[in-house]
Design a protein around this nucleic acid. Structure first.
Lengths: 102, 102
DNA sequence: GCCGTAGTACGTTAGATGTCGTAGTACGAT
DNA sequence: ATCGTACTACGACATCTAACGTACTACGGC
């Protein structure tokens, strides 16, 4: 059995470039919106997205590597969470303004 | 002589997708930073950018079409301005948080 | 063990994007 | 009218990216 761990950038290592690029995609903003809207700690499959599963994997990965979300294995599923505090600490107001925009 | 006018989106027509995509590029964020930092109403050539003039034209156009900046002819030059109020009205806090990020 | 579920890996494809150079236009100054 | 400056248009190129399908792995339940 392999230890299944997923790499997350440290709080300090989150870049504005990564975050803005990640949030510049409508599918990924939809993920972030749903996370902010109570879907926290849900599996990837629980999100309502207009793309196939493999494309969805890609988007979750981009968000994680940019430092926008956390992903932790729990059985076969993954718990996704928004890195609110880290984002607010790094770029105050950014997440809120994007979430407000719908 | 042709009337040289440049198309700008109406305030209402500015989209979060356009703005985030525009700001997701480091060269364009540099333009926005310099505009916010006193370079307002300067010609394109007055900006310190690590790209050629034709590439610079491209980036200014992307920013204008996204509704982030204004561009008006004045002689052979162009006056560039940040659409602070429009952006604040449309997506409160977004511009400030990006500018704070450096 | 076997199956189903959740997600990944990989290759492919089509389209977008950043970059450049060259050639051209519009305007002001001389 | 001629020239220089500021910017644009256009084509070329390389890279990136979003999307997909198929095949695969990891885990839980039976």
């Amino acid at each position: 059995m392999v230890v299944r761990s997923l790499e997350h950038p440290e709080r300090d290592a989150i870049t504005i470039d990564g975050v803005l690029s990640a949030l510049a995609d409508p599918v990924r903003r939809s993920i972030v919106s749903q996370l902010a809207d109570g879907h926290s700690e849900q599996a990837c499959i629980a999100f309502d997205l207009p793309v196939t599963k493999s494309t969805s994997t890609h988007h979750f990965r981009v968000l994680r590597e940019a430092g926008v979300i956390t992903q932790r294995y729990r059985g076969t599923a993954i718990h996704n969470g928004l890195r609110r505090e880290d984002l607010d600490w790094r770029f105050p107001g950014l997440l809120d303004s994007v979430l407000m925009a719908g």
